[in-house]
C-alpha cells in the first residue's frame, strides 16, 4: 500500500468531520475520539445527503437530510434502514492522517 499524508488530525474537530475530494468522489473523515478517525464515502445511499455534515455520536454518524444512521466502522445503515457506504482505512500517526492512495483512486503517491 502507498500511504499519503492527508492533513493534520487537529484539522478535524473532536466529533466533527472534514471532506477529502478524490477521483472516486468525496470521502468524509470523522474524528470520533482524540486519536480515532474513520473514513467513509460522503454520499448517503438514501438521497445523497452529505454525511460529513451529520452529527457524530459514538462510532456512528446521522445523515443531516433524513436521519439515517451509519456505522463508521462497517459503513452499514443502522436500525430499519438498509444501505451501505464504502469505508476507507485511515492511519493516525504522530498527529498526521494517512490514507491509502490506491484505495482513493490515485495511481501513485509520488
Amino acid at each position: 500500500m502507498s500511504w499519503i499524508d492527508i492533513g493534520a488530525l487537529d484539522d478535524i474537530p473532536l466529533r466533527g468531520a472534514r471532506v477529502v475530494k478524490t477521483p472516486l468522489g468525496c470521502v468524509a473523515l470523522f474524528r470520533t475520539d482524540e486519536a480515532e478517525v474513520y473514513a467513509i464515502s460522503n454520499r448517503c445511499p438514501h438521497k445523497g445527503g452529505p454525511l460529513s455534515d451529520g452529527i457524530v455520536h459514538g462510532k456512528k454518524v446521522t445523515c443531516p437530510l433524513h436521519n439515517w444512521v451509519f456505522s463508521l466502522e462497517t459503513g452499514e445503515a443502522q436500525g430499519a434502514d438498509e444501505g451501505r457506504v464504502d469505508t476507507y482505512t485511515v492511519r493516525v500517526e504522530e498527529g498526521r492522517l494517512l490514507m491509502n492512495a490506491i484505495a482513493l483512486g490515485k495511481r501513485s503517491a509520488a
Partner: peptide, 14 residues
Amino acid sequence: AKDYQPLADLTLEA
C-alpha cells in the same frame, strides 16, 4: 473559513 474547505483535494494531482 478553512473548516468549510475540503481537507485535501486529490483530484487535482490525479
